[in-house]
């Protein structure tokens, strides 16, 4: 404590470059991307009129039928996801979801047992995934603690991200 600090990097937050490629439409992934805007709108209109007569539970149940979450409802934690999401949608507590401890814990445990229950790459093609791994990193300086976390010899700085991203 007490020493003067100087800032390690001027701008540790790189925003540009990548955001461009992200905001651009990716033509080849179009076909693998589930429903088009039209079909979503059609769905919505179809539900729209009848909704008023439905109970909270029926509405939530109907929401579970929406195409965009079908991926989430399949797979090893699909049923846990459905239970937790349904409970959350129906929650009326001031801290929304606070009645859902049991289904939340079940989903949490399932994900811990199946770390790839909801992989991020399902909807992405391989090119995108590979491209992401080549992203250059900033020259990041950190000051680690003196104790246990340090190793004696210097490690060569790896300038490419090879770790999984998120």
């Amino acid at each position: 404590m007490g020493q003067d600090q100087s800032k390690p990097t001027d701008s540790p937050v790189p925003i540009p470059k990548r955001s461009e490629s992200e905001s651009e439409p990716k033509p080849e992934s179009e076909s693998s991307t589930p429903p088009s805007m039209e079909s979503l709108l059609a769905e919505a209109t179809a539900y729209g009129n009848k909704d008023k007569d439905l109970s909270m539970e029926e509405k939530a149940q109907k929401a579970l039928e929406c195409p965009c979450i079908q991926n989430l409802r399949s797979g090893p934690c699909g049923s846990q996801f459905s239970d937790a999401f349904l409970c959350f949608l129906m929650s009326t507590a001031e801290e929304k979801g606070s009645e859902c401890v049991i289904p939340f814990v079940a989903l949490q445990r399932c994900i811990q047992t199946n770390p790839n229950a909801f992989p991020k790459d399902v909807l992405e093609n391989d090119d995108v995934a590979k491209e992401e791994k080549k992203k250059p990193v900033e020259d990041y300086k950190i000051i680690p603690p003196r104790s246990r976390v340090q190793q004696s010899e210097r490690v060569v700085f790896n300038n490419l991200v090879s770790e999984p991203s998120c």
């Binding site: 540790p12 937050v13 790189p14 990548r18 955001s19 992200e22 991307t33 589930p34 429903p35 979503l40 195409p67 965009c68 979450i69 991926n71 989430l72 996801f81 909801f118 992989p119 991020k120 399902v122 909807l123 992401e132 992203k135 250059p136 990193v137 900033e138 990041y140 950190i142 680690p144 246990r148 976390v149 340090q150 190793q151 210097r154 490690v155 700085f157 790896n158 300038n159 991200v161 090879s162 770790e163 991203s165 998120c166």
Partner: peptide
């Protein structure tokens, strides 16, 4: 990942964007 699996969710920026995978002097 869960958000991204549902079409229509905004794509969040990569959490680790620009962060190296190892650091000098760190195990």
């Amino acid at each position: 990942n869960i958000k991204r699996l549902c079409d229509g969710s905004e794509k969040p920026r990569d959490l680790y964007d620009g962060i190296p995978s190892s650091f000098p002097r760190v195990k």
